[in-house]
Design a protein around this nucleic acid. Structure first.
Lengths: 243, 243
DNA sequence: CGAAATGTTGAAGTTAGTCAATTACAGTGG
DNA sequence: CCACTGTAATTGACTAACTTCAACATTTCG
């Protein structure tokens, strides 16, 4: 279900020879992960940069009290940790949400490549900026939006990001997250997520069944979410990946 | 109260000629701002990069419903928007919290300088990483920590960051934030912030009076906050600015 | 099939929000 | 110095949102 005819392109906003080089580098060494399996853990010294070739990953931080906060998702085409080479220890963990295939990119080889291809360097900076922008928007969500808006917002974001890499239709996409994962991402309890999803269904804003999300009226859902997609655009007019 | 004997050094973790060049560039053109004044607003095309020379700034996003979320603070020595040259429009606003002096750095001149001084480039990447790391931790706070922990955590972060730039004692620092600003930063109501601060006072974890925060027992406060400072260290052993 | 994970429901409890009034405080101009 | 202004801090009463606990139903998968 996650494999498409067209080959997946990493970092949709780069093209041509740069993109091919990056793709090639990412596919030289790959690893598969099962759901819930850690790809890197908090405290690890980072060895590789990771590129998502198939499946969904989540970034999370665990707290001493046993709870955890999912701080973001990485979808096919994303680079997870474009800043690894700056740090000595991971300050958060990255785990597979679905079955996932991840490209392991040697940091030194990447730095070499970036030296020769300045647009790649810029692309990494852009991915980094985009991640900050998403992080900020998630904080706004959890800090200021109520449960309905928060869930709607998350669904809008995931749908748009999937669409940008050709993995969604205009009115539907895969939704492999469990309610418990949605809860950890939004800072709500699983029970409340369950009830809030029912509200969204009752309002005809979503149809969520069989790991598939359908959106009967995207405009309505975005309005309910107070969703303004500009934070995903990195300052450009176009959505990343639509170029 | 905010001016110190030693001159403030931008980005504490760079030193020597690089630091001097950056300082010089930032001081060539400066501007003063009054509390609550916007330095850049959401939607603006960015003209300059901003370096905090004096005072506190806040980053925030406003919502259609009139509320706003403060997503972070910029303290003396910080660069606010080290990625401006990637974007065409600001996706959030930056405002002064106190009276503040800000260095306006022309993006082209900075890019020139970074070309000649690769360590500066790395320093910017590091600032960028640090901001992402803080953003992530704030999300964890708002998503998973209760009100007491959340406030304690914010105070711990600010105290440590101020200490790192020589603007705090081991057991105290300035605290110019109003309760309303603390509320906007933590996703709580002002009333609840007020009551929670009283709890922290009653537990002898803080003394907060006259815009000054005293911390009788730092270890106790950090424990109450579940504060682990490693997210401010950018993967290094040392705190930024203590090198 | 049976075990484990996920989703759903009800009832009760807790945390935090809202509204509205009051107090304390800082700055201003007379 | 004081009255006057506006902002910030504080308090009480009430309400709404969300959590917790515990049970049960459903789906997934070895």
């Amino acid at each position: 279900m996650n494999s498409f005819g067209e080959p997946l392109r990493l970092l949709g906003w780069i093209t041509g020879a740069d993109a091919e080089q990056l793709d090639q580098l990412a596919r030289e060494r790959v690893a598969d992960f099962a759901p819930r399996e850690d790809i890197v853990s908090e405290g690890d010294p980072p060895q590789f940069m990771h590129a998502v070739l198939r499946g969904w990953l989540c970034h999370y931080k665990a707290l001493p009290n046993g709870r955890r906060q999912i701080t973001g998702f990485s979808l096919p085409g994303d680079i997870c940790d474009e800043r690894v080479f700056l740090i000595r220890q991971m300050d958060h963990s990255i785990a597979a949400v679905t079955n996932a295939t991840v490209g392991l990119i040697d940091r030194h080889r990447l730095q070499d490549l970036m030296g020769r291809r300045p647009r790649l360097q810029q692309a990494m900076a852009r991915q980094s900026y985009l991640r900050l922008s998403m992080q900020r928007e998630w904080l706004v969500s959890v800090g200021q939006r109520g449960a309905i808006e928060r869930l709607a917002h998350l669904l809008c974001e995931l749908h748009l990001r999937l669409e940008a890499v050709g993995q969604a239709e205009p009115d539907s996409c895969e939704m492999p997250l469990t309610q418990s994962e949605i809860a950890e991402a939004t800072g709500l309890s699983t029970v409340h997520v369950n009830r809030t999803l029912q509200e969204l269904r009752a309002a005809n804003l979503i149809v969520l069944r069989d790991r598939t999300l359908q959106i009967p009226d995207l405009r309505a859902l975005r309005e309910a979410a107070m969703f303004d997609p500009s934070y995903l655009r990195c300052g450009d007019k176009d959505v990343p990946g639509n170029g």
